[in-house]
Structure formats: C-alpha cells, structure tokens
Amino acid sequence: MTNRIYLFTRFERFWHWTQAALIIFMAVTGFEIRTLYHLFGFEQAVFLHTFAAWGLIGLWVFAVFWHATTGEWKQYIPTMDQIVLIMRYYSVDIFSDAPHPYQKTRMKKHNPLQRLVYLSLWVFIYPAIWVSGILYLFYQDWQAWGIAAYLNLEVIGIIHASSGFLIITFLIGHVYLVTTGRTTFIHIKAMITGWEDVDHTGRESD
C-alpha cells in the first residue's frame, strides 16, 4: 500500500530547479573563463557568468529567507543517528535490492547522509564559492574596503575554482543518487510535482 506525501513546496521546487540551471550554466561559463575550452568567448563568458552569479545570489537570499521563516532549516540539522545504516545501504544493501532504511516524513525528508552533504554545501562550499566570487568580482575595491593586505587574488582564484569543481562533483553524485529510488524517476518526479509515493511506514521502497 502506498501513501503520497507532499515533500517539496512550490517555492522549494522553483528554487531547486532554478539553482540547478544556474549552477550548470555557471559551471559551463566558469570553466571557459579558466580556458578549459572555448564556447562563448572570454568576454561573453565573463559577462554571462557574472550575470548568472547575481541571479544565483538573489535566489539564495530568497532561499535563506524561506528556510529561516518556514523552519525548513531544521531539515539540515546534522545527525549521526542511522548514518552507518545509510552508508551500509548505499555500499552493500542497495545491490541486493534491500529496502531503503530511512523513513521520510514531511519534516524529516532528508536522510542523515543527505543532511550532512547538503549542510556542508550550505556551510562550506556555497559560502566559499560566493565569497571568493564576490571578492574576485570586486578585486578593484579591496583597497577601499581595507582588506587588500589580507588577501591574495591568486588564492581567491584557487578557492573559487576548487569550490566549482567540488560542486560539479556533488552534482554528479546527486544526479546519480536520485535515480536509485524505487523507480529511476520517482525522486525526479517528486521534485517536479512535489508529491512522492512512500509506503505506509514512510519508506520509499516497497
């Protein structure tokens, strides 16, 4: 027997897919700026990358506001509870078609592993990439801001590019893991419609 639970609100879905599009677009333009390939041309790539950056920052402002006011931020509180079980599932049990050990509910929709990964994105990687990005963009104002003595553009560049590579690495894992549900597209469908089918215990697998 299956239940449907409303996992992702309209804003959440909008935020998720817009962010996905912007991140992929910024990766494409960003790595071109690092001259890993030629696509738009340097000038256009810089323009588009910067333009998208402002969009993404705006989106994040809304997302942070949304998380803070709705209490959804609690979904990211880390927990070690069940973490071994989850890791065992993805490294062993998944191959024998065992059910997913985690039971989703509306207010606990992320399993402990997801919590950890998403939280580190929010706490480490995103701040690293947008702080370094803004510093990169406003290099000219370092002097006026009184921070020129403490910073090195070379290092900022390294942090920015490294964070970019880490986000793409996350993206690969993320895209793969969403296809490991009961059916390949069940999670993606949930991210589009908001509704996910779970069994009576809240487990996703049947």
Binding site: E154, G157, I168
Partner: peptide, 14 residues
C-alpha cells in the same frame, strides 16, 4: 583569469 594559472587545480578538478 584565463592565463592558465595554477593548472594543478584544473588537473585535480578534472
């Protein structure tokens, strides 16, 4: 940017 500084980051990233 674009001058190919710190290629080691690119190698590691790729």
């Amino acid at each position: 940017p674009g001058r190919g500084a710190n290629p080691i980051i690119d190698y590691l990233g790729i």
